[in-house]
């Protein structure tokens, strides 16, 4: 079986870390490059976390590039109340001693895309600043990148950051608008599906109580997560937001979605950062630039992710 070459751009926080730890062990995927962007926490922290997580999984061989330290236009917005000041909920983790990769994330992403022309799948689970920078700098990027798979936005439902916008898109709405207009097909795992792709309390505890280095990290990093979701009125669950686009690449049979036109609102007062999706309206945008994931097989996801985390080396 030929592996799918995948680049992952992340603002490594807690659920990003869990997504990376899955990505490294999905036999369908070959992670060929990583980049860090400012988002959940500062670039300094997301860069360090991405490197440390790769090292924890025994993948110091994958280069980690530093991306944008701030969004294009809006003021930076952090989620330290979710991910802790360090981005990993204060979990203990050894720092990577891998040599630091040289160069900007967007340049490295473009070079990588040229190595896998028409094949490279780009996963972006933070604000879309780095991907948008690659889009604006390299007009021929669309001919090399097969698809962009984001965790971000919401097609139908409330936002989690303002009344209509999801956090990653709100993190850099202008960059997101650029990515959706890039001509590269976008697969959007927004809150529509990521709220459904959750672990319940028992499932989190089963993972957290397993004695290996990865489960130990998850146990420490997710200490506050269940309480936080409960506080939001969503129950004692933990959403696997950032894992969705990665799992969808390896196991598209776990997900279902629809083709739609999506544009990002960049001038609205109440709706800045909304992914305006035409799925449910008579009026259409006139493009179908996005596959919007809407549903998932939660049981299958839980089974697979539990197996991957609990079978990491001690």
């Amino acid at each position: 079986m030929k592996k799918i070459p995948v680049w992952i751009d992340t603002d490594c926080g807690v659920d990003d870390a869990m997504a990376l730890l899955l990505a490294f062990r999905l036999p369908e995927l070959e992670i060929v490059g990583l980049s860090a962007v400012a988002g959940n926490v500062t670039l300094e922290n997301t860069f360090r976390n991405t490197r440390d997580i790769a090292a924890l999984a025994g993948r110091k061989d994958i280069p980690v590039y530093k991306g944008a330290d701030r969004p294009w236009i809006v003021e930076p917005r952090r989620a330290e109340y979710v991910h802790g000041a360090d981005g990993l909920g204060g979990a203990e983790i050894a720092h990577s001693d891998a040599p630091e990769a040289e160069g900007h994330a967007w340049d490295a992403l473009y070079q990588c895309a040229k190595k896998y022309p028409g094949e490279l799948q780009v996963v972006a689970v933070g604000p879309l600043t780095d991907v948008a920078n690659a889009v604006i700098k390299y007009p021929d990027l669309p001919q090399y990148v097969k698809g962009i798979h984001i965790m971000g936005g919401v097609a139908a439902g409330p936002g989690n950051t303002n009344m209509t916008a999801e956090f990653n898109i709100m993190g850099d709405p202008h960059a997101a608008a650029c990515v959706f207009k890039s001509g590269i097909p976008v697969t959007m795992a927004g809150l529509d599906v990521t709220l459904k792709a959750h672990l319940n309390k028992e499932e989190v505890e089963a993972i957290a109580s397993t004695d290996n280095k990865v489960c130990k990290l998850i146990s420490q990093a997710t200490r506050n997560t269940l309480a936080l979701y409960k506080q939001l009125g969503l129950g004692e669950i933990m959403c696997m937001h950032d894992s969705c686009p990665i799992l969808n690449l390896a196991h598209p049979e776990f997900f279902s979605g629809k083709e739609a036109g999506v544009h990002v609102e960049t001038t609205g007062v109440e709706t800045l950062g909304k992914t305006v999706c035409d799925l449910y309206s008579d009026g259409k945008h006139g493009v179908k630039n996005t596959t919007v994931l809407l549903d998932c097989d939660r049981e299958a996801i839980v089974k697979l992710v539990s197996e991957i985390y609990t079978t990491y080396e001690a």
Binding site: G157, P158, G159, N160, T161, N162, M163, T164, L232, G233, H263, E265, T266, T267, G268, V269, E270, T271, K274, V276, H285
Partner: peptide, 15 residues
């Protein structure tokens, strides 16, 4: 709003 003028926005989560 380029795409959202005239949208009624509701605060479902009490944000």
């Amino acid at each position: 709003g380029l795409y959202t003028r005239g949208e009624t926005v509701a605060d479902v989560y009490g944000i």
